[in-house]
Amino acid sequence: MHELAVTESVIDAISAQLSDMRVTVVRLEIGKLSGVMPDAVRFCFELAGEGTCVEGARLDITEPDGTGECRACGSVFPARDPLALCPCGSAEVTVTGGAELTIKAVEVADHV
């Protein structure tokens, strides 16, 4: 369950910069080919976030596709898994991208 380590890295990185703020939303990008399960991250986030600046924050996750390039017909298409098939039917596909694992942004409650 590497998602726990991944989630702890997310919380550590945010806490290092914003420990004195109350974070209300965390926006993550988890590529479809990153090998990380968004649902498992959601599960871990709630537990690992307790007592930190992200406690109670909402987690918004976007999941970008990778890119498949067919070595048979040359077409380029969105790849949603590492074994993507080309629309032409070929399995001779080189898959790139889709491995994003990034904290895009956070929303913090203002000091009013």
Partner: peptide, 16 residues
Amino acid sequence: PHERVIVLDHRVLSHN
């Protein structure tokens, strides 16, 4: 209102 966005663009595994 009363919330602001802070862009981080931080790779999660950058520390590792």
